[in-house]
Computed example of a mutant assay.
Amino acid sequence: MEAVIFALSFAAISFLVFLAFKHFDKRVTLAFGLLFAAYLGLDDLVTGLPSASSAFSFIGGEWNWSGKIYSLLLSVVVVLGLGIKPEALGLTLSQRNLRASLIALFLFILWGLSLGLLFKPSVPSVETFAFQASMPGMVEELVYRGIAPALLLGLIRGKEPSQGIPWIVVFITAVAFGIWHGLSYSEAAFSFDPMSALFPFIGSIAGGWLRFNSGSLLFPILAHSFANVAFHLTALIGA
């Protein structure tokens, strides 16, 4: 029940964030804002299923492999069901502004190292490196830099994406991503960790720019994955 309450609450908060900023971009409509919020709430719910019940965990380990796979499967269902074109999601290897993307990738790695030195994570296992190098970057970037922006922009039923960076959409999804990391619900009470929300929010602004500046999810996925690995690598310094 806690997972359902959190998912519904997160969907409602995401919709309120959408309402607060929708007027700054006329392409963003109420119907697609509702779809955006419902999708993020459902994604949170399926991602958290293994935590809610061990019956939903089909891959063991210390990390939520099963939840990320559920999220990925949901993404496939949503993309196919709504007819979202790969180009609208950034699912292409074709790159624009490659030099800027490479510089951004390097800066993301420095960002991960800096956060690791600041927060001092525990010494990682092989599983930790494997998970951080694959799942969060691939799955979360598809959700928050691929599908969520496409829904806000109404890019369904084969609609072609426009050029340029939709900054309001980038901002809305970044706020939602930050809240998702900072908000928690347990024992009938909500709590919010501002620091856990702030850094994902900042990274999402940069990741959203990278997604639309490059025209592809490739570099946002690489940047997210490399930054996560760099964060955990710092635990080996002086270990």
Rank of each mutant, 00 (worst) to 15 (best):
H23S: 14
K26F: 03
L233G: 07
S71T: 12
F106E: 08
M138R: 01
E62R: 08
G146V: 10
G81A: 11
G215Q: 08
A239F: 14
D25Q: 03
G154R: 07
L98R: 12
A104R: 09
L153W: 08
S66I: 02
G154T: 09
I69C: 02
Y70S: 02
F190I: 08
I109Q: 04
A3D: 09
I202R: 01
S134W: 12
R99D: 07
W180Y: 13
F219V: 00
A3P: 07
Y70P: 05
V170Y: 07
A3G: 15
R96S: 08
V126K: 09
K22S: 00
L8C: 13
A31C: 06
N228I: 00
S54T: 12
A20F: 13
L91S: 04
P121Y: 08
K120W: 14
I147Q: 09
G158W: 08
A150G: 02
D44H: 13
A11F: 01
E140Y: 04
K68E: 13
L80W: 09
L142R: 05
A12K: 02
M195Q: 12
G164D: 07
I103W: 10
L102A: 08
I205C: 05
R27M: 00
F15Y: 11
I59G: 10
P86F: 06
F18Q: 03
N228M: 06
V77R: 04
A52Q: 12
I179Y: 00
S196R: 14
L40A: 06
K22T: 01
T234Q: 10
W167D: 12
G67L: 15
I237M: 13
I84K: 03
L153N: 10
K68Y: 14
V76A: 11
G48M: 15
Q132A: 15
Y144L: 09
P121S: 11
S101E: 15
T47C: 11
P166G: 03
P86M: 04
L72S: 04
K68G: 05
M1K: 12
L155N: 02
H224F: 07
L105K: 11
F108N: 09
K68T: 09
F36W: 02
I221V: 14
G61P: 11
V123E: 15
F231P: 02
I205R: 07
W63M: 04
F108K: 06
L91E: 00
W180T: 11
L210I: 10
F212G: 11
V79C: 05
F212Q: 08
A176E: 06
R99E: 06
F119P: 09
R211E: 02
G178W: 10
G164W: 12
L30R: 06
M138E: 10
S186Y: 04
P161G: 03
L73H: 08
H224T: 09
S54Y: 11
E141V: 05
G158Y: 10
R99T: 10
Q132F: 13
E2F: 05
S122R: 15
L42S: 12
S9T: 14
A3Y: 13
G215K: 05
A230F: 03
L107C: 12
K85H: 11
